[in-house]
Design a protein around this nucleic acid. Sequence first.
RNA 1: GCACCCGUGGUGGAACUGGCAGACACGCAAGAUUUAGGAUCUUGUACUUCGGUGUGUGGGUUCAAAUCCCACCGGGUGUACCA
Length: 800
Amino acid sequence: MKYDFKTQDSKWQKKWEEAGIFNASADHSKPKFYGLVEFPYPSGAGMHVGHIKAYSGLEVISRKRRMEGYNVLFPIGFDAYGLPTENYAIKTGIHPRLVTDRNIEKFTSQLKRVGFSFDWTRTVDTTDEKYYKWTQWIFRKMFDSGLVFRATTLVNYCPSCRVVLSNEDSQGGKCDICHSDVIQKSKDVWYLRITEYADKLLEGLNHVDYLPNIKLQQENWIGRSEGAFANFAIAGTGDYLRIYTTRCDTMFGVTFMVIAPEHPIIEKYAGRIKNMPELEAYRAECAKKTEFERTQLVKDKTGVRIDGLTAVNPANGKEIPIYISDYVMMGYGTGAIMAVPAHDERDYDFAKKFGIDIIEVIKGGDISKEAYTGDGEMVNSGFLNGIKTKKEAIDKMLAFLYENGLGEKGVQYKMKDWAFNRQRYWGEPIPIVHCPRCGMVGVPYDELPLKLPDMENFAPGEGGESPLAKVESFVNCICPKCGGKARRETDTMPQWAGSSWYFLRYCDPHNDECLASMDELKYWMPVDWYNGGMEHVTRHMIYSRFWHRFLYDIGFVPTAEPYAKRTAQGLILGPDGDKMSKSKGNVVDPNTIVDEYGADVLRVYVLFMGDYGSAAPWNENSVRGCKRFLERVAGLTDIASGKGETKSLEASFHKTVKKVSADIEAMKYNTAIAAMMTLINEIYDHGYLTTDELGVFVRLLCPFAPHVCEEIWESIGGNGFCSVAKWPEWDESKTVDETVQYAVQVLGKLRAVIEVPADFSKEQVLTAAKADPKVAQFINGKTVVKEIFVPGKLVNIVVK
RNA sequence: GCACCCGUGGUGGAACUGGCAGACACGCAAGAUUUAGGAUCUUGUACUUCGGUGUGUGGGUUCAAAUCCCACCGGGUGUACCA
C-alpha cells in the first residue's frame, strides 16, 4: 500500500467525526480518564508547531487509554479574552468578537487537520456569555466570602497598553504583552485574597503527582518562610518597631535597623526627626524608581540615617541607629528589619558603606572580608554563647522573646494578593455595583451573566480607565440593595480568570443551572493528567488551584485539588536553535508540514525529535526520516499474509509491545517510536510477517500515526476503528530470546561477547566465557581472584 | 547572587536500579537502480600508531562509572535585596 496521506487523512478525520468515537461517553459505569491540555489563546497568527507538540503528548496517552477500555475525556477549548485581540481590534476597527470567532475557526480547522482525538462536542470559549456567566458567578461567590477587596496602591502600569498589570505580568519591569517599560502609578484596584490560601496551596502539593521541578517552582512561588516577629523599642517613646526575621539567633549581632522608605513611623515621629528634608528627598528618589529598578540595584546600597530616632536591641539593651533604605520593602514582612551585618550579605554591604559596627556572633567565617551565613558556635551573644547549632539558638531566642513579651514565632509568604482587574474592554465585566449609600454591592446571581456591552471604540481612556466607562447605559444602574441610583464597576477581569476553572466546565459544558453538575464532577474530577508549558506552572496553575480549592471549600466541587498529575513539554526551537519568533522569521507553520508530509508525519516527528520534556531544534531532514518510516509502515501490507505469529519475530513483537506500552506512560515517546522503527527494520530483514502481526503493529502505532494505521487496519479487515481497537498485550514469557549474549570482561575490560542458551547457570556461563580464546589469552597463567556474574548481561573475571 | 536542571559522534538524541557507551534517526561516503533526483534500495560511518583511547575538566569510590562523591569550567530554566 502507498502512504497516500492526501486522501487518507481527510477520509479518516471525517469518519471519526461521523462516528463520534472520540466523544466522552455519558456512561459512568466505565473507568474514566480525564486528560487535559492547556487550551490555546486563539491568536491571529494561527497555530504553531509548539501547540502540536504540547497536544501530541496527551493525545497519545488519551488514545492509548481509549484502546485500554477507558471512558476518556480529552477536551479542547479557547482562552479567548485578551489584549492581542483587543489591540488588533483597536488598530483595524474590527470588533473583538469577530476577530475571536475568526481565530477560533482557524484554530479549529488546523487542529482537526492534525487528527487530534478531541471531543469537539465539549469545546468551551471563555468569551461566550454562557461560559463567562460562571466566571462571574465564581467571582461573586468569592466576593460573598470576603476574598475580594479593593485597595489603593502603587501599581505596575503599562503606558503603552494603558493597563494595570499584576507583578506577575510585569516581571523584569517589562509589560508581559507589549514589552514596553512599566511605570508605577497610584490606583484603586481589585484584589483576590489568594494569600489566605497560601498554606492550603502549599499543603495540597503533598497530595498530587507533579514533576519535581514543577512542585519546587510552586513552593518557591508561595515562598513560605518560618521565623520570628520581634519588637524593637524606639528610645524615648513608648513605641516600638516591629520586624520579621528568620535569623533571630543572630540578634546579639544587630547593630542597626533599616526600614522601608514608605514606613509610616516616619510620619508618626516627624516632630522628633531632625533631618526630614533629607529623608523626604530620598523618598522622592525611591518613588521614581520602578520596582524593577529598585530590585536591580543590588550592587550599591543607598540610604539615609534617621536623625533623632534610635532603637533598642531587645537582646542586649544596646541603643542602635535606624536608617531608611530601599533595599527594605514595605510589601514583605513588616517593612522593617533588624540588620546583622556580620551574618547577612546585604546588611554587610550597607554597614561597610555607612561605617557601622560589625559584630561577629557566629564563629566560622572571616567577617573582615565578608558576611558569614553558615553555621557555627555562638559568641558575643550573652545567654546563647557556646551553642553550636542554628536550630538550638533560634529556639532559645524565641523562648526569650516570648517570655519577655518582645516577640513570637511567625510565618511569612512571598506570594502577594492577586491584582484582579484590567481597564480593558475585551474581558469579563466585574459584577459589582458601586452605590453611594450601600457601598460595593454584588450583581444578583439571577442577573448573571452581566453582559459585556457592544461598543464601537474600544480604546482605553487617557487616564487609564476602562473603555466601558464611556458606555452610559452600562455604567448607570440601580443598586440591587436599596434601589437607588448607582454606578456599575467598569473594570474587567484579567485573562487568568477564564482559565482558572475551564477544566470544570468540560465535565458538563452545556449546563445552564450550574457551572457543572456535582454528578458529572464526581465522575470526571480530578483531571488525571494535565500537560502544558513550564511557563504556566506558577501563575495559571496556582491561580486555578486557588479557585478550585475555594469552590471545594464552599461545596461546589468534589475534590480539593484539580490536577492529579502534571507534566510539561519542552519548547520546539527554530532550525537555527533559537526560540521560534516572528521577528526572527524562524517559525514553522504546522499547516505547511501537513500539506507536504501529512498529519501523521507531523505527529510522529514532534514526538520523535527528542526527549519530550526538553527543548529541541526543528530539523526538516528528520521530518523526512519520519515520512520514510510511515511509508515503510504502509508497505508492510505488501509482505503480510497468514494468521498467527511468526516464530522468528515473536520475541521482538512481544518486547516491542512491552517497551512501547511502558515508554508511552513515561512520556518517552522518542524511544517508543525508535522501538517501532527497530521492529520494522527487523521485519523487512526477515522478509514477511503475518496479517495478525501487522494488526498488532498498527494498533501499537495508532496513537502516534492514526490515519495510516486506520487505512491499514481497514485493508486487513480489522474490526471497527483501529483508534478504539484493543490495545495489544504482551506475554512476558515470550519477551525472552532463546539465547542471550554475555559481555565478558577481564579486569573490567571487554574482551569478548559470547552467546549462550538463556537458561545457562552462572557456572556454565563462566566456563563458556573462560573457554573463549580471546578471554583465555588474558587469564592464562594468572590467578582468578573474583568472578562477577550479572544474569543475562555480563561476567567480569578479576585476575592477579 | 541564589535554587534547580543539563554537558555523550558532524547533528537530534539512546543507555533500566552503577553492568557491552553511541540504540533510533538525520547527515555524510560508496555502490545499485533510474532519462534525472532533494526518490528508492544495499553497505559503511566516534577516534586510533590497531596496543589501545574515548561521555565538559581534574580528582575519588568500585571488580565495574555517562550514571555515585568532591572541586572546577561551560550552558539552560526559574527567581531576584523576601529579612
